[in-house]
């Protein structure tokens, strides 16, 4: 098998496929491989937090301490930082966003498994969900018409409204896409990079010689470095997704 074929196969392997059901099209009733990993990651998240919340001690220790640390991180570094104490109402939602993304990203880092966030189906759905939630919060706070009016930045000259307002509306509607594509692309690209270095290592071993020994060793080193980097990306993307959700919520509450 040459390099081109291997990469083709890698890309093909990263596509969703039906584990249960018959894949007859985008709207067919199937359970894809990514959904299996997603459900595993979500189940693990639930088990982790429910177990941790039953094992809390005043002097922090063990699994309870890790869960507390995570919640405290979201509370202090995301919710309180962006929204202040009024954001505490949304803490459960933002905690869920953060840990749903984080656990899925991390699960994909276990060799052989894939992240539930590695398919657009998941990331786009969650992007739309965030879009619906923050707009609903804005409408509830200000009323539909004042909220829609607030899309226009204050101080816009009247003769520019025809241009600015549609742009602002479009930028809002782009948010679920940017949220979804950013997370998906990061996970997808990370797996391609790891996969390609993996292919290099395997191909070098298959045709062992002086040159391939060097290439294979370097590829293995690169794969280890990239793996560490992907752990970092997995965390950063969860943080970015959660903080953008918070920023959008804050923007909906405090219209300009």
């Amino acid at each position: 098998m040459d390099l081109g074929e291997s990469i083709q196969e890698l890309l093909h392997e990263l596509q969703p496929f039906a584990v249960i059901g018959n894949n007859t099209g985008k709207t067919s009733l199937i359970l894809t491989n990514y959904m299996v990993f997603l459900i595993i990651a979500i189940a693990l998240t639930i088990v982790f937090f429910v177990v941790a919340s039953r094992k809390l001690t005043l002097v922090p220790k063990g699994v309870g301490n890790i869960a507390e640390w995570g919640v405290e991180f979201v509370r202090n570094n995301i919710v309180l930082d962006v929204m202040g104490s009024e954001g505490m109402v949304y803490l459960p939602f933002i905690v869920t966003v953060f840990f749903a993304v984080l656990f899925n990203n991390f699960l994909g880092l276990i060799p052989g498994l894939k992240p539930g966030t590695g398919t657009l189906g998941t990331t786009f759905a969650w992007g739309i969900m965030v879009f619906v939630v923050y707009n609903w919060v804005g409408v509830k706070k200000h009323g539909l018409v004042p909220y829609l009016k607030s899309f226009l930045p204050s101080g816009t000259p009247w003769w520019l409204v025809w241009l600015i307002y549609p742009l602002e509306v479009i930028s809002h509607f782009l948010r679920p896409f940017t949220l979804g594509v950013r997370l998906y692309a990061n996970m997808y690209a990370g797996h391609i990079v790891l996969g390609i270095f993996g292919i290099f290592v395997v191909m070098s071993l298959a045709a062992l010689g002086p040159v391939t020994a060097v290439v294979g060793t370097l590829s293995l080193v690169m794969q280890i470095i990239m793996y560490a980097f992907e752990v970092f990306v997995a965390f950063i993307q969860a943080y970015v997704f959660a903080i953008l959700t918070t920023v959008y919520l804050n923007g909906a509450l405090h219209t300009h």
Binding site: F49, P92, V95, A100, W126
Partner: peptide
């Protein structure tokens, strides 16, 4: 283009996680 079933499964999963955490 995402699979419709993926959208639904991920939304439901998120909902379940949200209720469990909340």
């Amino acid at each position: 283009i995402p699979y419709t079933s993926e959208l639904l499964v991920s939304l439901v999963s998120f909902g379940v996680l949200f209720i469990a955490l909340w």
